[in-house]
Simulated assay, not measured.
Amino acid sequence: MLTEDGKHLYVSYDEYHNLIEKLAIKVHQSGWEFDTILCLARGGMRPGDILSRIFEKPLAIMSTSSYRAAAGTQQGNLDIARYITTPKGEIAGRVLLVDDLADSGHTLNAVIGLLKNNYPPITELRSAVIWTKQVSTFTPDYSVEYLPTNPWIHQPFESYDTIRPAQLLAKWKV
């Protein structure tokens, strides 16, 4: 649900999963065959996992982080992991890079540059995201929703950013 001022987008679990299914359809309808899904942790992990299951492809993970301050609402310096975790040795062939959104575009541009320069076994690389903001300097190959008002996206699992174990103990009276 987009707020009237266009500054906030609230997404339920059902909407979130429906959007990932629509992303899968876009990739499938393109006819492009790929060997591996590489998701960017953390935002791309849920979409990457679901796409991996739908397409029956191995899931590789590359950890990136730029939203750490203020419970994940302020962008800071981009950190990219030195290694990719993959169940099949080295990542190679045709790779679908998955993240949740193209926000500023900084992360996706940096990761694609790193992959092209440091992973010669990757023969083709395409990108897939749920949302693309108008301000993004990166245009993904596959995207479900274009957001011209650049809202802050409130994803359904973000409540866990501020929940701590003591709160769960109180909630569940353990």
Rank of each mutant, 00 (worst) to 15 (best):
S63T: 08
E56R: 00
A128Q: 02
Y10Q: 10
K57Y: 00
L78Q: 00
H17L: 14
G48V: 01
V111Q: 10
Y119T: 03
V27G: 11
R164K: 15
V174R: 13
I130D: 05
V98L: 08
G72N: 08
T86S: 15
Q75Y: 07
G89H: 00
I20T: 04
C39R: 01
C39P: 03
R42F: 02
R94W: 05
V129A: 07
E124N: 11
V98N: 09
A128N: 02
A60R: 00
K116W: 06
E124L: 08
E15C: 07
Y146G: 11
A70W: 00
L23C: 12
V144G: 13
G43S: 13
T86L: 07
E21D: 12
L78C: 06
W32Q: 13
V111K: 14
S136C: 14
A24F: 00
D35C: 01
P120G: 07
L19Q: 02
A24L: 02
L19S: 08
N109G: 09
Q29A: 13
L101G: 06
Y146D: 14
P121C: 14
Y13C: 05
N117M: 13
T36P: 04
L40V: 08
K57W: 03
Y10T: 01
I122L: 12
W131H: 12
G105I: 01
P58D: 05
Y10M: 06
N77E: 13
V27Q: 01
N109W: 09
D141Y: 02
K173S: 14
D5L: 05
V135F: 12
A69D: 09
E33G: 12
L96K: 07
K22V: 10
R53V: 13
I91R: 04
K26Y: 08
I37P: 06
T3Q: 01
V111P: 03
K116M: 11
L9A: 05
